[in-house]
Design a protein around this nucleic acid. Structure first.
Lengths: 381, 381
DNA sequence: CTGAAAGCGCTAACAT
DNA sequence: ATGTTAGCGCTTTCAG
């Protein structure tokens, strides 16, 4: 292992190129206003010495860090049960990398960690934050707002009275069209001729679960007998919860002919209970999930029809919005992030095929960007 | 959102407390050699002003960053198919947090990214790196060694001729006892009275797959007819690969009565093919997996007997070893990481129950720390 | 278009 | 035990 030998400084490069430090600095940072022959000499010296700018020194004067924090709270470690997390990170990482920003990962393990994270964020160590707000009652978003760090949330924030946060144009978030996706799923079941369509909800302290339930209700309101409350069973996004809910459902409504589960894991549990009860899927009961968690949906028996959301794209978009706000901030806006100016490239670049649902923007004035979902037909419905 | 108002500096705190900057600095950094009354005044001022040290300024002079990079290469995105990644990160994060270090996440998407990561690591932005080396031919480890950054690898590194790297005491890594775990699994099958025990390998360009195969062979060498090469089918750690391999196996050896799959996903594929072929598990064919990937093993049909490795613990240990090397380095060792001084607290704190396998240290002189595995009995074997 | 000089906020000798 | 001082490596006016 080589000794951590002191790296060359601007000074060294300047000496070697026979110019001043200022000139080297200019070249290194884009090189405006340096005549080509000189610039070339500088670049040469940089290459020869293997010069890499000292980020600490740079930050000290620019007050920028080219780093953003990604904050992930993982209460019951549910986040870790699925590949969600990884995909989001991947999208975020790609976008940050493309803009030469570093990703500082902040995992929250428990209540105590909130203070730590808040302190870090207020400490001015990063230029902004991407925050995944999982629960309606999570104190974290509030703390972060107080910290005064430009922030983009992942998933519609649910804090505040009646989801007030999501309507505050100062709060920027990215989400998938949970409600629209749910509608598409239920409509599909209706189109299949099903009438006793049930819903196994997700954990209702998360906005995604609430929105999917709302979407279900939107469509069922138009189905004769569709507002039978026994058709909705509360669950929690887990396979075990799905089993429990499905048993309960079978008890309440033995005549059920379709199930829209709040996510694929829940659908998996339902599938098992249905099989055990002697029902055939989809002949007797059609089943649809949500997320399109690949290993799960494709390997399910039968393969699961589901509503796909592009997790990685959500990550990318979050990062993009944050970075955009940051660059504004540098010029004159004090870093306030805004969700407008949605050029949408890369986001809505897929053809508008059948089964497509949702709009790309959830109403004017809101700080939320909502990505469309797609119904993926497999064997279960 | 509050304006990014300039935070208070040491100077401000000093003024308020009526002392010099140096004194404040001393108090903030542990407070040796400052008399209590004074120290109290300083702490008071710090609290009142909400002072947080400027990390950039501090790094500039100390040349330390209290940050480590976590480098994850994810070739075919396989990493993201399972919760592995998340668990490792969680373990790492916990340990780093406990020592006030930041986690900078570097995801490698393709060949081009290697250079970028190498440059970042050489750039002296972090104090050390935790690197997951997935493939035998990965150029990354070499680049990282050149970068001269204290590093701990996740998983036995396979580069160099014949795994030379793992024997270099200068190369530190943490792995689970793949070979021992495999032995335990196969021994269990033997104990069940099985004789035609097959192995579906993992991707053999990863040391974990190679080691598990070796473990299988260790035991089979003592089983009559156990060295039948047809009993080993190469696969790739995926469910689809598992299906393919299992079909091939059934073709070659219809009399197979047990299968040790290189991981749980592979076992899942095997299970499906076995069912389709009309075989009962475990009556006709016993099946064992590896990893104990919970959602998969518990939800499998039948629930999967498997070899558990404590992923999170591996992450913790990697971070701990790195941090330990770093603190040595600060005193006098130029940051060289060493795998000795294994106090092992938290690592070997579980009772030595039955089915336990492996040693905590893989031979003297090597830079590797190998964590034990546990056989988890469920219904499939 | 280029160079000289003034700090950014902090730590670590060195004084006292 | 506390204060004074000299930079860490860089960007950025400000002159020329």
């Amino acid at each position: 292992m080589t000794e951590a030998v002191s790296r060359p400084t601007l000074e060294a490069v300047a000496a070697r190129a026979g110019v001043s430090r200022a000139t080297v600095s200019r070249v290194v940072n884009g090189g405006d206003g340096v005549r080509e022959p000189l610039a070339r000499r500088v670049r040469q010296a940089v290459a020869e010495l293997g010069y890499v700018p000292n980020q600490a020194a740079r930050s000290l004067v620019t007050k920028r860090h080219d780093a953003v924090a990604v904050v992930i709270a993982e209460p019951e470690a549910r986040v870790f049960a699925d590949p969600f997390f990884a995909l989001q990170l991947r999208g975020i990482s790609k976008e940050l990398t493309a803009h030469d920003n570093q990703l500082v990962l902040l995992l929250i393990e428990g209540r105590d960690d909130h203070a730590r994270v808040a302190r870090y964020l207020s400490g001015g160590h990063v230029d902004g934050a991407l925050v995944f707000s999982l629960h309606l009652d999570d104190p974290l978003p509030g703390l972060i707002q107080d910290a005064g760090v430009p922030t983009v949330f992942g998933g519609r924030p649910g804090w505040g009275d009646d989801g007030r946060a999501a309507k505050d144009p100062g709060v920027v978030y990215v989400d998938c069209d949970n409600r629209g996706g749910a509608r598409a799923a239920v409509r599909h079941l209706v189109g299949l001729g099903r009438r006793r369509i049930a819903h196994l909800t997700g954990a209702l302290d998360q906005t995604s679960a609430v929105d999917r339930l709302d979407g279900y209700r939107d469509v069922m309101a138009e189905v004769p007998g569709g507002n039978d409350p026994r058709l909705v069973v509360e669950s929690d996004f887990t396979p075990a919860g799905g089993e429990r809910a499905m048993r309960e459902l079978l008890d309440r409504c033995p005549d059920v002919d379709a199930v829209f589960a709040a996510n694929d894991l829940t659908a998996l549990g339902a599938l098992r209970v249905l099989r055990a009860s002697g029902r055939r899927v989809p002949e007797d009961v059609a089943v649809i999930g949500f997320d399109d968690m690949l290993p799960v949906t494709e390997e399910a028996d039968p393969p699961l029809t589901t509503v796909r959301q592009d997790i990685e794209q959500m990550g990318r978009l979050m990062a993009r919005l944050l970075l955009r706000g940051l660059s504004h901030g540098r010029d004159r806006m004090d870093g306030r992030v805004r969700a407008d100016g949605r050029d949408g490239t890369d986001v809505r670049d897929r053809p508008d095929g059948p089964g497509r649902s949702g709009t790309a923007v959830d109403g004017p004035g809101a700080g939320g960007v909502v990505l469309p979902t797609t119904l993926i037909r497999r064997a279960s419905a």
